[in-house]
């Protein structure tokens, strides 16, 4: 068996660690599947939450999470990539740039619940967005932003300098070099890093609970102005019920969330492959 091959002491320790982690993940997924499998039927994905666990579903929450994902990407991707381009290609490399860089790095480590508190003050109250999908999407976008900036910077920095020089040497303007050489070359790296940031943000419950996610909404949100609901907060709400039937619902909703994030990751992976192929 492959995992019993002897790799030396360090190799063996690493292999044990890797297989333990893998086993943990499989166990987790298996547990969820056993708990939640029974509730997974088409009606579960479409119907609204209900006091009757037999009829409850994740329809509105799923729609809310899709809305949140859309808004998060729509806000954080252009702003994050723009900031990264500015910092790498335009900003003078001085003390301020170093300071800005360290701020971005530390923001990436701020706990998500803190973003919730800030989102409540800024988007819900000061901006007057209320406890809406919009306020939630903006909060998650800000949460994802530091990681989007950091990984985009890394991707832009790893574009070979020869490519820049060659393009400038042919009389390209700064914008042309950026648009036709740097961004296409950095795109796969930006996509991978940003995807991680977005899946993490969209899976967050804490900041949405802080800004006030509705726990009981029976209609699917039609736009950013509708009440804030999401899958993670739906899962949280169900876990607070005492009856075991609601536990099964939470597990089923968790499976749905995992499948959604997995699908997003696979889509980005496929897009990245296409970009790489075009790149060669």
């Amino acid at each position: 068996m492959i995992f019993l091959r002897y790799h030396g002491k360090v190799g063996t320790a690493c292999a044990v660690g890797a297989w333990t982690a893998t086993a943990g993940l499989i166990l987790l997924a298996g547990f969820l599947a056993v708990r939640g499998w029974g509730v997974l039927d088409p009606a579960f994905f479409l119907s609204s939450p209900s006091r009757d666990p037999g009829r409850a579903g994740i329809g509105p929450a799923l729609a809310g999470t899709l809305w949140l994902a859309l808004l998060t990407v729509a806000f954080a991707l252009p702003v994050g990539v723009g900031a990264a381009v500015y910092l790498e290609e335009y900003a003078p490399k001085n003390r301020w740039a170093t300071f800005g860089e360290s701020v971005v790095v530390s923001l990436a480590g701020v706990p998500s619940v803190v973003y919730g508190v800030a989102g409540l003050a800024v988007f819900v109250r000061a901006m007057g967005a209320g406890r809406s999908i919009l306020a939630g999407g903006l909060t998650l976008a800000v949460l994802a932003l530091p990681v989007v900036i950091a990984t985009s910077r890394e991707a832009i920095r790893s574009v070979p300098d020869g490519l820049r020089r060659a393009a400038y040497g042919l009389g390209a303007t700064r914008w042309q070099v950026l648009r036709h050489q740097i961004l296409p070359a950095a795109a796969p790296g930006i996509a991978t890093g940003s995807c991680l940031a977005f899946t993490r943000a969209v899976g967050e419950a804490a900041p949405l609970l802080v800004i006030g996610a509705a726990s009981f909404v029976t209609f699917a949100p039609q736009g950013p102005g509708d009440p804030l609901i999401s899958l993670p907060t739906r899962i949280f709400a169900w876990t607070t019920h005492a009856q075991p039937e609601f536990g099964a619902l939470a597990a089923g909703a968790a499976i749905a969330l995992l499948l959604l994030l997995l699908a997003a990751n696979l889509a980005v992976l496929a897009a990245r492959r296409r970009m790489r192929r075009a790149y060669l």
Partner: peptide, 26 residues
């Protein structure tokens, strides 16, 4: 005043697009 570099640095594009890059840019 054009320049050719020490390392060949073709753009990761087609042969045609490599040659067309400069004219298109201008």
């Amino acid at each position: 005043i054009g320049m050719v570099f020490q390392q060949p640095t073709p753009f990761p594009k087609s042969v045609f697009d490599n040659v067309a890059f400069g004219p298109r840019a201008s």
